[in-house]
Design a protein around this nucleic acid. Structure first.
Lengths: 144, 144
DNA sequence: TGGTAATAGTTGAAAATGTAACTAACAAGA
DNA sequence: TCTTGTTAGTTACATTTTCAACTATTACCA
């Protein structure tokens, strides 16, 4: 019980992934948290809309794997702060297309810059092939 | 706004890490959640004690980077369910050594097996060097 | 048609988390 | 000793998240 089985906690993937993800998430937070007063889920929604273009909440759920209640609340909050607008679809009035407002687009563009430079900064201690391999591995693990 | 900047959301590290970590965490959850009714923080504490041996809450915080309130609550909960005991240190009565009870050890051993086989399963589509590289990269990102 | 099932999205209550303030114990210098 | 500062850990309160139930709308099919 003192140490060493044939299992190294430090190298256990879910644990390691969580540690790395937390570290990155927390340090990236400052970019959107203070400046735009956004939560993690909110900037994710913003990024999806900014990057992929207009879509419904359901589509965001599918792509991001965020739960629909989380998305629903993030959307409500972004709307209240005029970062996006919603519009019922004429042929299916259950769903609504979400569109970024000009302010939303501006915030997206700004945060995209932050993200880009953050990404460069966090990967600067890796070689190009290392980073590519890492991203591919993560994509596979995330089942994307 | 429609697509393609010189930034790929899908490859943004904090996002990708989060997706991969979520996927793994959620799918590993079933092992400790249903069987032992534990939360993520709780099995983490259990694993630390099981793997590294008896230690104080503070030491768990340092190693795991979990916040002390989280650890405090996890410890309280594990104690209530008789997975561990606490004992004040004679020379510094602020801190307490945490020790797994026999039930705690049993749970740890059982979950360690699950973890081991889960880890093997999730990495089975990678070559050995790939997995090693991945773990090293994650260790670096997590600043461990 | 009418009836059942499925889907998009919202809401309320319960559980979990984060933040800050707190208690208790120690430390160290005047 | 007294005062100030630090550390281990807990608690209270506000914010988030989760889960399940809900509304409204569409889909299917007898």
């Amino acid at each position: 019980m003192t140490k060493k089985d044939d299992f190294d906690l430090m190298l256990f993937l879910p644990y390691l992934l969580n540690q790395a993800a937390e570290e990155c998430s927390v340090s990236f937070q400052q970019h959107y948290k203070d400046k735009y007063n956004m939560l993690r889920t909110e900037w994710r929604v913003l990024f999806h809309l900014g990057y992929y273009g207009d879509m419904t909440a359901r589509e965001i759920c599918n792509r991001s794997k965020l739960h629909k209640t989380k998305v629903s609340r993030a959307v409500a909050s972004l709307q209240k702060r005029r970062f996006l607008t919603r519009e019922k679809l004429p042929h299916d009035r259950r769903s609504e297309v979400l569109k970024l407002s000009p302010a939303g687009v501006a915030a997206y563009r700004d945060l995209r810059e932050s993200a880009l430079s953050y990404d460069q900064d966090v990967t600067k201690d890796f070689s190009k092939p290392e980073v590519d391999a890492l991203r591919q591995a993560l994509l596979k693990l995330a089942r994307l």
